[in-house]
Design a protein around this nucleic acid. Structure first.
Length: 261
DNA sequence: AGTAACCTGTGC
DNA sequence: GCACAGGTTACT
């Protein structure tokens, strides 16, 4: 489920659930999480109060007293669930945080690719190099031109590079190209200012639409995509038919008729 | 740029 | 059975 809009929503939920609460226990229920978090790291976090939640791109940070942090990434299928002590955590719960108000927050992830890491106060930032957020005023035509200038490959895979832009994933990269009427196969470095401007607007529009449907995630969202997942269907704005291709191992959906090279 | 790896589930 | 899945990293 997670691209920027969904992660932003998840982080907002965490804020409501965890800030000012004390972490009573952390249970790691999948070996892949236990591999990355030692029992002693867990014990250092236990009992600490959560001071704030931060998000950068698709990354979430739980800030704790004393400068400790939890770094969480949902990857493909992670999400938060929560409940009261009497409630059973959902199937596929990979980590379970119990708080001092008798409630719990669960990291639920069918594919178990999500990561959760405990970061000590003196450790450097756990975040990889990330470009600006789409809504950052620093995300400009000039910036994007420079970020794409060194790229050899085609546009859509370049938009997935989190160093170019933080938070855009496979769905919204395709949607952004559709909104901007740009063929996702064009060389990333070939865009002039006019198309870069359309692309930036397209990225912001796609993420904004995503944020709207992230509120009521599910059935509705699927139909709200203009291109993603609509192979063989009619384009919403021209007589063309949406096509699916594979770029860098990922599906790309686009309209070959109105998305020009 | 492509491919495998990490994991598990779903749908044809 | 096989293809595919909204991510990222590390290899040819």
């Amino acid at each position: 489920m997670p691209e920027q809009p969904e992660v932003a929503r998840a982080a907002a939920q965490l804020e409501r659930l965890l800030v000012r609460r004390r972490i009573r226990t952390i249970e790691l229920l999948h070996p892949s999480l236990r591999r990355r978090v030692t029992p002693s790291a867990v014990s250092r976090v236990r009992g600490r109060r959560v001071t704030a939640i931060e998000r950068r791109g698709k990354h979430q940070l739980v800030l704790l007293e004393g400068g400790w942090r939890l770094h969480v990434h949902f990857r493909m299928s992670g999400d938060w669930a929560w409940g009261s002590s009497g409630d059973e955590p959902p199937r596929h719960t990979r980590a379970l945080l119990r708080t001092d108000n008798g409630r719990w927050v669960a990291l639920v992830d069918p594919r178990a690719l999500s990561t959760l890491v405990v970061v000590p106060p003196d450790a450097p930032s756990p975040l990889p190099p990330l470009g600006p957020e789409a809504d950052d005023p620093a995300f400009t035509i000039a910036y994007l031109a420079a970020a794409l200038a060194g790229k050899r490959g085609s546009l859509k895979p370049a938009l997935l590079d989190q160093r170019v832009l933080a938070g855009v994933g496979n769905i919204y990269a395709a949607e952004a190209c559709w909104h901007a009427r740009i063929d996702p196969r064009v060389r990333a470095s070939s865009l002039g200012p006019r198309r870069l401007e359309r692309l930036i607007a397209g990225i912001r529009l796609a993420l904004h639409r995503g944020a709207e449907s992230a509120a009521g995630y599910g059935e509705a969202a699927e139909d709200e995509f203009a291109a993603y997942g609509r192979e063989g269907e009619r384009c919403h704005r021209c007589p063309g038919t949406i096509r699916r291709i594979v770029q860098a191992g990922r599906s790309t959906y686009f309209c070959p008729r109105c998305q020009r090279p």
